[in-house]
């Protein structure tokens, strides 16, 4: 079965490695994931004022394109796209009047019938593939690598769109276990990394990154795993910059879960785009002997 994929702009620019590793995994699993046609930016953040229907237009237009292509679900890789598309999808299902209004604005598109399911890639791997299946395919177990899962916000909140428990999520932990890594827990795993403040309030985000990661380091973590391109930038790049403020602090590598899966499945590291990180993610994997098997 062909699976429809919605990339969003960040996956096409600063998070190409997330996309590339995800596609490599899907190929290995024997699934055909195809980029949907005619997508546009979803607007990243969901409309939070009740009268602001305008900002639901972009997400809805994308959902209509999926529906018109005959697909029942659309897979996203970016946490923020996932959240935004799903919130709009919910809103139009809960408020048919709003959907009617929004449909009026669609010139080229058909009316939305509400048949599309928005699915995060991580959720797809858990529910459609199964972590136990991944586990059986592992060639290079991440043995002895201590990793802290970091969830951030958009996979967990608001509750209506969450892919896991909002306070005690386990999806990344379960995945890491399947890949053979050692999981380090950290109460900061569900706290916001500072998000878009990374543009105008860098120090604030450096501080967030330091607080989140340092706690993990103190508990013995060698690395962090996460899913959102903005979280990656904030924890990796701003975290690295925080070394200048906190003298004894040493930034650990930050991985996308897709990169760790690709490595564990023995796929060519080329697919992981490790060059695009502030802290070289390959050193730890070499040190722990994951790569050399």
């Amino acid at each position: 079965m062909k699976l429809s994929y919605y990339p969003g702009c960040t996956l096409k620019t600063s998070a190409k490695n997330l996309e590339k590793s995800a596609f490599a995994i899907m190929e290995k699993l024997g699934h055909e994931m195809v980029e949907m046609e005619d997508w546009t930016c979803c607007g990243v953040v969901s409309s939070l004022t009740d009268d602001d229907l305008m900002h639901h237009l972009a997400p809805l237009r994308n959902l209509i394109h999926v529906e018109d292509a005959g697909d029942e679900q659309v897979i996203t890789l970016c946490d923020m796209c996932y959240n935004t598309l799903k919130q709009t999808n919910l809103r139009v299902k809960e408020k048919p009047d709003d959907l009617e209004t929004l449909n009026l604005f669609m010139d080229r598109e058909n009316d939305y019938k509400g048949t599309v399911k928005v699915v995060h890639f991580l959720e797809f791997l858990r529910d459609e593939v199964g972590f136990d299946v991944l586990k059986k395919m592992v060639k290079n177990p991440l043995k002895g690598v201590k990793i802290m899962p970091y969830y951030g916000c958009m996979l967990l909140r608001p509750r209506e769109v969450a892919i896991d428990d909002a306070e005690e999520p386990t999806i990344l932990k379960d995945l890491l276990n399947a890949l053979g890594a050692e999981v380090i827990d950290n109460p900061f795993k569900i706290e916001c990394c500072g998000s878009y403040h990374t543009i105008q309030q860098k120090e604030l985000v450096m501080n967030r990154a330091y607080r989140i990661t340092n706690f993990a380091i103190e508990r013995g973590s060698d690395a962090i795993v996460l899913s959102c391109p903005l979280c990656r930038f904030n924890l990796d790049v701003r975290g690295k910059e925080a070394e200048k403020i906190y003298k004894s602090y040493k930034q650990v590598p930050v991985y996308y879960y897709t990169q760790l899966i690709a490595v564990a499945l023995g796929l060519d590291p080329e697919y992981c785009g490790f060059d695009d990180h502030a802290v070289d993610p390959t050193l730890l994997l070499k040190k722990k002997g994951v790569f050399e098997k």
């Binding site: 969003g8 702009c9 960040t10 620019t13 923020m80 543009i199 105008q200």
Partner: peptide
Amino acid sequence: TDLTEITKDEKETIPQLAFVSLFRK
């Protein structure tokens, strides 16, 4: 936010979704 305060370097290094969020907020 004053858009002119955002530097070229920031535009080239920070992920796109941060900008769209900032502008929306």
